[in-house]
Write a protein that binds this DNA or RNA. Sequence first.
DNA 1: AACAAATTTTTACGCGCGTAAAATTTTGAG
DNA 2: CTCAAAATTTTACGCGCGTAAAAATTTGTT
Lengths: 343, 343
Amino acid sequence: MSATKIRNMEEFAAISGISRPTVSKYFNDPNSVRKSTRERIEAALEQHDYRPNIYAINQNRRLTKNIGIVVPYLADPFFTEIARRIERLCIEASFRPILFSSHGEQALEIENLESLRSIKPAGVLLAPLGRASDRVVIEEFCADVPTVLFDSNIEKVGEAFVGSDNFSFVSQTVEYLTRTGEPPSFFEMRTPANPNANKRRLAYIQMMERLGFDPNIIKISGEGWAFEEIGRRGALKILEQGALPTNAVLCSNDRLAIGFLAACYELGIKVGREPDCTLRVASNDDHPFSRFTCPSLTTAAHDYEAVSNRSVETLLELIENGGRFATRTETLFPAKLVLRASA
Amino acid sequence: MSATKIRNMEEFAAISGISRPTVSKYFNDPNSVRKSTRERIEAALEQHDYRPNIYAINQNRRLTKNIGIVVPYLADPFFTEIARRIERLCIEASFRPILFSSHGEQALEIENLESLRSIKPAGVLLAPLGRASDRVVIEEFCADVPTVLFDSNIEKVGEAFVGSDNFSFVSQTVEYLTRTGEPPSFFEMRTPANPNANKRRLAYIQMMERLGFDPNIIKISGEGWAFEEIGRRGALKILEQGALPTNAVLCSNDRLAIGFLAACYELGIKVGREPDCTLRVASNDDHPFSRFTCPSLTTAAHDYEAVSNRSVETLLELIENGGRFATRTETLFPAKLVLRASA
DNA sequence: AACAAATTTTTACGCGCGTAAAATTTTGAG
DNA sequence: CTCAAAATTTTACGCGCGTAAAAATTTGTT
């Protein structure tokens, strides 16, 4: 590329020998101009690498090419992984993804939505905080901005929801534990941050009853998003007072399970399916780190690919469709059981 | 707030009874207008909640209020943690942070820098990929955009660097291991992604020689950013063939150590300082998860707060200073040794 | 009360591009 | 070569706000 620096589209149009409106048309859709014109523009582009001013572009457009992505807690590698996939898919669809994390705080979630409003995005993929969310704020946001919820549902809010089927998670882990040993207790936070936790508890109860066992739920205390530490402390307490009524435990999610396993290790309790083990621990999510726990964690895996693909597909469809769907759809993907050493 | 929707600053100015240029001045700096005027504007603001169009604002401004944050790999909770802190500090300084992850790929790092260019940020905090970075591209970027490097240094690039003092990390872990037992081997990737790894190796060699021991470096193969899996496979290989020459191991970073500990567990090797343990493992970083490994990981901790604070401080100073410093400074913060169960 | 300083208002222009409408050129079919 | 269709160019205006300069007003001081 040459050293000549182009200030605006006017100059670039002059250099490439094409009128500015046609150049403008090219940048909005290269296929909307004649092939010979396109080639001339692209030749000039290689010489001078000009890019239209993004602020000027968006000022006069109803909908920008921005897609907002909001996750509740980016320090959770589950969300990092989903966000990574979603970002890539947006870029491939020639949109500009912008990532926000609410860091577990209601105030930040609200702030993120306000920031998004001012960016005038074509659409938003929102994984809400859950219990900590301000429902009214989110409703108002969704009324103004085409939004697809993912991971964590809020009933009737947003144009669609894409997530995982919690019943599929729990039914598989409960069934597996029961079939290969004894029925598990269910280990969870007393006041879960996320609605998925509630669905998992209900699924556990339903599965246990279906199999003819009494449900046994262990609720531990703790607030916030430091699930590992909450799980560890909760497990230490339960295990130290010998309050565990079963020899198998199903944790509501992998991050709690990571803490649970740490507690077992500290107390010298051997976890796994080997003969010398006294406890089996399974969980749900297939968190990126669950491969490296000690022992490695048996868990029901999210279909990361399906969830992220469908989320983006749905949003693009929504954008195509002018921002509204006739009916709100909820898409749930089943889990895949991943057998490792812990159960 | 009332239902009347304001389209632009003109309308809002009319409603609040103030001229548009004065309103504009208010939004750029509320303290630049008379108190009575400020109060009238803020009263109107509560009634009608108007926000200036962000694209129109930035079109005519030399420097926007945007701050770009680029990290090499957001799935690494170390970077998530740093990013979270930096974001917060930027918001407190009334800037708009925008987070990008290069996901370990050179192409994405370049793309991120291009995106940042088009956003015309006031400044950028960049943690480069390291070995995988295109030095020329980053140099050119830094020449155009006021940039502070953090975490991973590139010599002479950017207006300043803020990071951790690798020698401080390794000297403390080596000294501790040696003092309380035997000198460690050093466990690292053959071709590390990050220049910090090289500094840590050199520090290890230097410390060992200073203490009068022969350095012993174990280099394992593997590419990419899946450090845990690379560490696990490497450790399995070494341990299975009994090629470990010492009873203490210092891992270059915590993510490798997480894999190393997983391998030890799989092989039934007891790690720690208890009498029945045959191996001690320490590491560097204090990764957010190193608290939950089995056994919990003894490690040299980054001063997360100091690094993020100083990074933002330095960038704000740079912005104040018009985007250039007379001399390029490099600030390194020492590590704090965190003793846990693994060594 | 008078006056200089500080602040606000008025007026006016420009940023870089989207986009509509009319005029012109190019393309492709016959 | 002719002509209609398609694509492009010309022309012109607007988006929402920053900002400069000059005029008018308010403020604080003596």
